[in-house]
Design a protein around this nucleic acid. Structure first.
Length: 713
DNA sequence: GAGCACTGC
């Protein structure tokens, strides 16, 4: 602790904080900023007023581990003067004066106390990662320091590259630089410019082995030290691991040290991830580890003993397209910040080397400086609802002051979605339903479903579905090909959704687990991740409590125990889902099983093959479905579907027709041309017909199709 | 008949 670079800057930091409401601290890995800043300010009396110092972290584990260390350094009992708060866990007390929390928890706190008066200092740590939540907090902080100019200090820690930008955002606030404790890392570039992703990502695996570049060079010639290889995904990792194993076996025995090759990615069970990171530390003599990893090793996991890094230069990134309402998972080039972060992984224990599988020209001229922040890659329905629920008097959502504002299109997309599920009215004002929805830690469609389900008497089932969907990705174990085949040979005993679709199946699975008294073995027998299922149980409990608080009375939130759900229960649940997912409806097309989404931008989509949705005797899928998510991979797919009835869809289409984005967005920031097309003085129906806007006419067409079908039936 | 990087309330 005494050696931490940041301590030499203590006086300077204190003085600067004293004179300025906002300070940016640039501190590289190992500077000690996460553990020391809070302690320094605590010692200088910033907690004397009875207000605490809050330090946000983007990840739960960081909040826990850093707070634990701080408590130890200060010699206080953990959970008293120093504590942490993450979802499901609040280890703080009345006495707590240094509180570590995830940025999501701070956002929740600011919902009930918008001025965050319980804090004298708010430190946004790791702000350079630009998580969606951190970005919202940055905007809120800018506002908050104006209101609480006398008794609030905000500190933002950032990486080297965008410190200037953050400073400009906060009226050119001072920037302090604190050196890190990294060892020098020598960078080596590839001499050839990769021509395509195919070549660089999938074939880098081969290139590494075949071309005598990087890998054989390191393993045969370089001294001890583990090698960390950054790839994009599980598939590439498995291929590369196999190739490396072949290569290593072909090496002459005794010509170099032993090698162990290990994959590291998010689909591995967490226990395995953790143990892998610690395997052989310290490593046995004369043995080298090759760790082939996704960007999980960039920030989330630190592998000890890495001296060499091989960087493919690519990353798999999920992005949302507001003009189609669709997510896609793309392999994209990393940013320079990311490249530096990867290289830094080689210099944690001693001087290291980083081999970049791209040229220095690519690094300097082609790569973007920083990664596109999450807020510009996500659907903003939840974010907009959150901001609206804060009811900030001076704020127009479309003009909210973000460090990097999302596009108008993305914001308008969010407004339309919120309007369709009754969270905001036609003028864009939050409704009482919307206010309730914002209280729930769920995406808006699921919050809306819960509220509707409460009306229909199927809240318990809806709670389960919402909780299951929140954890969905962590339910199934890593999909290695072998387990997949196994499943095909002996179909699992898990329920199938009774033909109604995936939401119902998720409900049935949880009900079964509930009947087995949450038996861990049952999960294992049915190939479900125990941790995932426990998470579902926690989420469900949290949601039940919030719903009961909102309703101010006791609701029936119990699971059904041994009673079997009836078709009537399923029907009510599906009806609630239809209301909640009003912005995510699709209609089957005539005579085949393709679908067209119903909304502002109709898309041709298909049922994801993983769905349990059933066809009827004639082999046809349901006429109408709601979907949880549109994801474009090889083709556009709907994931997690549930059959709904035509008559439930009707009122939604009517509402869709009335939608007027000018009014929704508060009448601001519309270009003249757009305003002309939606002239509010014209009768609404004529607008629908007269507008040249393709979207409008398609909506009309969707409604016409619906009406004609109804008369036929 | 397809495949999923990583977080978080």
């Amino acid at each position: 602790m005494a050696n931490l670079p940041i301590l030499q800057f203590e006086e300077q930091i204190v003085e600067t904080v004293e004179r300025n409401p906002v300070v940016v601290i640039i501190g590289e890995t190992g500077s000690g900023k996460s553990t020391q800043l809070s302690q320094i300010l605590h010692k200088r009396g910033y907690t004397k007023s009875g207000r605490a110092i809050a330090v946000t972290q983007p990840r739960r584990v960081a909040a826990v581990s850093v707070s634990r260390r701080v408590a130890q350094e200060l010699g206080v009992r953990f959970g008293e003067e120093v504590g942490y708060a993450i979802r499901f866990e609040d280890r703080t007390s009345e006495k707590t004066c240094i509180k570590y929390l995830t940025d999501g928890v701070l956002l929740r706190e600011s919902l009930s106390n918008p001025e965050l008066n319980q804090y004298s200092v708010i430190i946004l740590d790791e702000a350079h990662e630009r998580s969606l939540n951190t970005d919202i907090l940055l905007g809120l902080m800018k506002r908050l320091i104006k209101i609480r100019s006398t008794n609030l200090k905000v500190l933002i820690t950032s990486a080297t590259l965008d410190g200037e930008k953050v400073s400009r955002f906060f009226s050119n606030c001072p920037i302090l630089n604190v050196p890190g404790k990294l060892f020098p890392v020598e960078i080596r570039y590839s001499s050839e410019r990769p021509t395509s992703y195919l070549e660089s990502s999938l074939k880098t695996a081969i290139a590494i082995c075949a071309n005598n570049f990087a890998l054989s060079e390191i393993h045969v010639r370089e001294p001890e030290g583990d090698i960390l290889i950054f790839m994009t995904g599980q598939d590439d990792i498995e291929k590369l691991v196999k190739k490396l194993e072949e290569r290593v076996q072909s090496l002459e025995e005794g010509s170099c040290m032993d090698a162990v090759i290990l994959p590291l990615h998010g689909s591995l069970p967490p226990e395995l991830q953790a143990s892998l990171v610690r395997v052989f530390s310290p490593p046995p003599p004369n043995c080298r580890r090759f760790i082939v990893a996704t960007n999980i090793a960039e920030t989330s996991l630190t592998v000890d003993g890495v001296v060499y890094v091989i960087d493919s230069g690519y990353v798999k990134q999920r992005q949302y397209n507001p003009s189609t309402g669709m997510y896609s998972l793309d392999v994209v080039p990393i940013s320079r910040v990311q490249a530096d972060q990867r290289a830094g992984r080689a210099g944690r224990t001693r001087p290291g080397k980083c081999y970049r599988l791209y040229t220095s020209t690519v690094y300097h001229e082609d790569l973007m400086g920083a990664t596109v922040p999450e807020i510009q890659r996500s659907s903003l329905a939840g974010t907009v609802l959150y901001l609206k629920s804060l009811d900030l008097p001076d704020i127009d959502i479309l003009k909210f002051d973000f460090l990097d504002p999302p596009s108008t299109e993305a914001l308008e997309d969010a407004l339309k979605q919120l309007y369709l599920i009754d969270a905001i009215d036609e003028n864009g004002s939050i409704t009482s339903i919307g206010q309730t929805m914002a209280e729930l830690p769920l995406e808006p469609s699921l919050s809306r479903t819960l509220i509707e389900a409460n009306e229909y008497g199927c809240l318990s089932q809806a709670l389960t579905v919402a909780a299951m969907l929140s954890a969905e990705t962590s339910l199934l174990p890593g999909t290695s090909k072998s387990t997949d085949k196994k499943r095909k040979h002996e179909p699992s005993d898990l329920p199938d959704g009774s033909g109604w679709g995936d939401h119902i199946q998720l409900l049935q699975i949880y009900e079964l687990w509930d009947q087995r008294n949450y038996d861990v073995e049952w999960c294992k027998d049915n190939n479900l991740q125990v941790r995932g299922m426990k998470f579902v149980r926690d989420v469900r409990k949290q949601l039940s409590q919030i719903m009961q608080k909102i309703a101010k009375g006791s609701l029936d939130v119990r699971t059904n125990g041994r009673r079997k759900e009836s078709q009537e229960d399923y029907r009510n649940l599906r009806k609630s889902l239809c209301v909640g997912y009003a912005n995510q409806l699709a209609e089957r097309m005539m005579r085949h099983n393709g679908y067209r989404t119903l909304g502002f931008k109709p898309q041709l989509v298909q049922v994801h093959p993983s769905s349990v949705l059933k066809t009827d005797e004639e082999g046809m899928l349901p006429n109408y479905v709601v979907y949880h998510e549109l994801i474009s991979t090889t083709r556009p797919f709907m994931r997690n579907l549930c059959a709904v009835e035509m008559r439930w869809v009707m009122p939604i289409l009517k509402k869709l027709e009335k939608l007027n984005i000018t009014k929704l967005s508060g009448g601001s920031v519309r270009s003249e041309e757009q305003t002309k097309g939606e002239n509010p003085s014209l009768p609404e129906k004529e607008v629908g017909v007269a507008t040249p806007d393709d979207r409008e006419s398609r909506i009309q067409a969707a409604r016409d199709r619906f009406l004609s079908r109804k008369t036929k039936g």
